[in-house]
């Protein structure tokens, strides 16, 4: 105690320290073991990307092939396709989700009736909590040729469309349905920031003759700017996350050209065709770039928004 209170200089002797503090190590040990086993051992497992991996031989005894898997990977025509699809879908999703959430939060903030606001929030958060299997099942039904959406399209005098089966529509459907699922939930952070803006600022501006739209422009928007900057910075970490579970649920070979992403490719090549080394190489490529993107996003968030996770 005296050491901790700073009354005695230097460190407490190890024996006395451990007598009191061993429980801290006992507490963290089980979690640490799980992390070593299921997070760090797979990191060691990325060596398969540099091997001709065979499950019978294992990580240690498989033949090393250097960068052959990567040479092969970068020569595949699919590689540019999956990288391009991943970036296009992920970036559009991130941008639209953030812009949509800001707009939606501003509109909700302008609605004064509390019961109305609560009900709106309750309804728009709901899709976030449903799995992509549930939503995928719903989408497959309502977007089918005789689903309710195409019935509406026909009623309006247009040709029915294969929303999930045509390369013209697949990305739009994926981005749109992802927006539909997530944009309501994304408003939460902005709504929290909006409630923190002092009402006295608004009142002062109103007294000075600022109308409603000028107040939104000059007070509300600057008030949430730090939150906007923070989320923009953090979203950099997600530009390779195009929505694996969603696309795996919704896509089909007909739309590989516009809808196949890195994750679905890794899944097909690795787990369906058991080409472990090639899939491992693609996965490692994504992990390494993803790691630097996340580190950069946290750095930006700290630098420009004062946000630290630790």
């Amino acid at each position: 105690m005296l050491y901790r209170a700073g009354l005695v200089k230097g460190q407490e002797p190890l024996r006395a320290y451990l007598r009191r503090s061993w429980p801290l190590y006992a507490m963290i040990l089980p979690g640490l073991l799980f992390i070593l086993l299921f997070r760090y051992l797979p990191m060691y497992g990325v060596v398969i990307a540099f091997q001709d991996f065979s499950p019978a031989r294992g990580f240690a005894a498989s033949r090393w092939v250097g960068l052959d898997n990567f040479d092969f990977l970068f020569s595949l025509p699919e590689f540019n396709r999956i990288l391009g699809n991943t970036l296009i879908i992920a970036v559009l999703k991130l941008a639209l989700d953030q812009l949509g959430a800001i707009a939606l939060a501003l509109l909700i903030n302008e609605a004064r009736n509390l019961v109305f606001r609560r009900s709106i929030q309750t309804l728009i958060y709901l899709p976030h909590f449903l799995s992509w299997i549930v939503l995928g099942g719903i989408l497959l039904d309502i977007l089918s040729p005789f689903g309710i959406v195409n019935n509406l399209v026909r009623a309006l005098g247009h040709e029915p469309q294969l929303f999930l089966g045509s390369n013209d529509w697949f990305r739009i459907t994926v981005i749109g349905s992802s927006l539909w699922k997530g944009v309501g939930f994304s408003t939460i952070v902005y709504l929290a920031a909006l409630t923190a803006i002092s009402p006295t600022l608004q009142e002062a501006a109103a007294i000075d003759g600022a109308g409603r739209f000028r107040r939104i422009w000059h007070i509300t928007l600057p008030g949430i700017r730090p939150t906007v900057v923070l989320l923009a910075a953090l979203s950099l970490g997600d530009v390779l996350q195009a929505g694996f579970e969603q696309i795996l649920t919704l896509y089909s070979p007909a739309v590989y050209r516009t809808g196949d992403i890195i994750d679905t490719y890794v899944y097909r090549v690795g787990l369906v065709s058991a080409q472990y080394s090639l899939a491992g190489a693609v996965g490692l490529f994504k992990s390494v770039i993803g790691f630097f993107l996340i580190v950069a996003s946290y750095w930006l968030a700290d630098r420009y928004a004062g946000y630290r996770i630790l």
């Binding site: 640490l32 992390i35 086993l37 299921f38 997070r39 760090y40 051992l41 797979p42 990191m43 060691y44 497992g45 990325v46 398969i48 499950p55 990580f59 994750d263 890794v266 899944y267 690795g270 787990l271 472990y276 899939a279 491992g280 996965g283 490692l284 994504k286 992990s287 993803g290 790691f291 996340i294 580190v295 996770i309 630790l310």
Partner: peptide, 20 residues
């Protein structure tokens, strides 16, 4: 040790091989 494990993902295939 904890944060790095969160930031760097061993990936689908190595994790699958470990679990198997």
């Amino acid at each position: 040790v904890f944060v790095f494990a969160m930031l760097f993902d061993g990936g689908l295939i190595p994790t699958f091989l470990v679990v198997r």
